[in-house]
Structure formats: C-alpha cells, structure tokens
Nucleic acid binder design. Structure first.
Lengths: 170, 170
DNA sequence: TATTGTTATACTCTATAACTATA
DNA sequence: TATAGTTATAGAGTATAACAATA
C-alpha cells in the first residue's frame, strides 16, 4: 500500500508517458494509425477471436472495435469469417497481408525504441514491461459501464479568449 | 540494449496501459477533462511559466496548449499574466480556485489507485514510477516537428462495410 | 526576419444511444 | 427478452497551416 504522494506521482508519469505513445504513433504509416496496429497485434498474439473478445482485449466499447475492424477489413488486413455456432457472431482472422503490415509496424517501432533506449539494459526493459503489465492487470476489466457517475459540473462558463473577440470577424 | 521481442512487448504494454489512463480519465469531472488536469499539475509542480514552456512540458504543439489554457482561464483556474520583459509572452499562474480543483482531482485519482493497487508494495509503485520517468526522459523532446516523414499510403481504399450498404438510407 | 501565441480546420480516439439480426 | 454487432452522433486530443503581434 503506497502513499498519496506516490499515487499523485504515478498519475503524473502516466500522463507523461503519453508523449512516448504519441511519438511512436507519429512514425506509423498514415493508412494504419494508432489503434489499427493494436488490433493487428492482438489478433497476431491471441489468434482468431470474435468482436466482443477483441473489444475486451482492447478495453474499449464494442462500437469502437467495430469501426477499427471495418477499417482493417477494407484494407484486406483482416477478415470477418462467419461463426458456425452463432450466426450473430463474426470471427476475426489476420490475413497474410495483415501479417506483412504488422511486420512493417514492428520494424518501425523497434527501430525507434532501439535508438531511444540504447542505454537501457535488457533487464531494465524487462522490469518496465513486467510492472506495466501488472498495472494493467490490477485494473482488470476497466471498460466503460453505466454504473460510474461523474461529479456535476460547476456553474456554466463562457469560453472567452483574451485577445480576439469571439465574433469580431464573422 | 534489448532484443526486438522485448521492444514489441513494450509497445504492446504501452498500448495496454492506455486502458488505465482511460479509466482514470473517466472519474474526472466533466468540466475538467483529461488534459486540463495535466496542465494544472504542471503549473503546480513547476510554478508559473510561459505558454511555450508549458507546451514543452506537455510535449504537445503550442496550439494544443493554447486551447487547453483558454479552457482553464475561462473557469478561473489559471491566469494569463503579462510578461514584463516580453510583450508577446504570457505568464501562466495557477489561481487558488485552480489549486482547489487540483486537490479534488488528486482525491479522485488517489482513491481509485488505492483501490486498484491495494496489493502493491510501496517499493513496487516506486519502481514503476522510476522506470516510467526514465522512459519519458529517454525520449527527450519528442514533440512533432516537420523533419519526420511518414510512409506513403497504399492504394486508395473504399471504406466498405459488410452488412449495410453505405448509402442505402440517405 | 524570427519568435510567441491564437485560431481554423481536420483527423483519430472514444463513448452513448438507436438500430438490426440472431439466440 | 437478451446478446452480437453496426451505425450515427458527439466530444476530447492532437496536428498543420494561416495569422497577428512583438522582438
């Protein structure tokens, strides 16, 4: 059990690591952005699965997964096969072209990481992987669900800007 | 220097940790979303600074920072003070109301983390913080800049969907 | 001319809600 | 009625480019 100061610092670091994610995303090809790579990776690691299972892995809503999958199907990187035991379901399958694409993605990210982490030891990288993996596990199934309630907003606010009147040139 | 397999796994874990970030973002009040907290935090930790410095801390484009700051100024959580030595510049200052807001945010995230990480030792949390901080440092100033080039896109693709013709009901 | 910041625009990611098809 | 998946819509995050003011 850690102290409040540690938790605050952890939140700061989670936010800061976002910059690393963005840097990695920037070297992706434009037709295969951020989330697409994640989908391909999961299918590569865990094999064929249905939409709902994929959404669980990604920890996002099924509607998000549906869009991402449509994008990948349109490019021929994955297929949606019928499920013999449930006609509502669709089995997702990584195609050879998708595997090629994935190899390309890994080549890009590996190269960038090799540059940036040239002074990291094998063991240090392993520890970071281990701890991040454990962090993810500790949060379990953290997809959105209706149970959670947000705090009410404060009084309404006028979005003002200091220098330029909002409607000076309309 | 780590191997390719480790780098691939690191990318996967960076992606997976996104679920944790989203879970934390979900408990934020609606009028103080994701990035707003990050801005308040940085001003709290590092004190007053100008826009460009803040953008550097956040590792985002100045235009992004400008929008986020305008949001926070509209709510009275930060102020834009004139810079006595450079009239182009504006010094950002956290207000007492902003500090109150920040306390509220920390209370929320700390509570969630205390629940999720109840079986983590103080030392383990410390190690994760240390390694993530080091990861961020290894990437240095990784803001977008024109030097980087993306790979050209493949042949154009028709975004098709399997079940519903795209324009069946327009 | 270069720098600081703002704004317009566009695209990705994510969520909620309404809908269709099947169980 | 409940579940699997799709689509429409909306909001946050981020980037590029055009712009204004100052150095």
């Amino acid at each position: 059990m850690a102290g409040q100061a540690q938790y605050e610092e952890l939140v700061r670091q989670l936010s800061a690591v976002g910059a690393v994610r963005r840097d990695l995303a920037r070297i992706m090809p434009p037709d295969c952005p951020a989330g697409s790579g994640a989908v391909l990776t999961i299918l590569d690691v865990h094999g064929d699965m249905r939409m709902s299972k994929l959404a669980e892995h990604l920890a996002v809503d099924l509607s998000v997964t549906s869009r991402q999958v449509a994008h990948l199907v349109a490019r021929g990187w994955i297929e949606r096969l019928p499920d013999p035991v449930d006609k509502r379901s669709r089995i997702l399958h990584l195609t050879p072209a998708g595997l090629d694409r994935l190899d390309d993605l890994f080549r890009r990210t590996t190269q960038l990481l090799a540059e940036r982490l040239s002074d990291w030891s094998d063991d240090e990288v392993g520890q970071l992987i281990h701890l991040m993996s454990r962090l993810r596990e500790s949060f379990g199934d953290c997809r959105p669900h209706p149970g959670r309630v947000h705090a009410p907003a404060d009084a309404p606010v006028i979005e003002e800007t200091t220098r330029t009147p909002a409607n000076a040139h309309t």
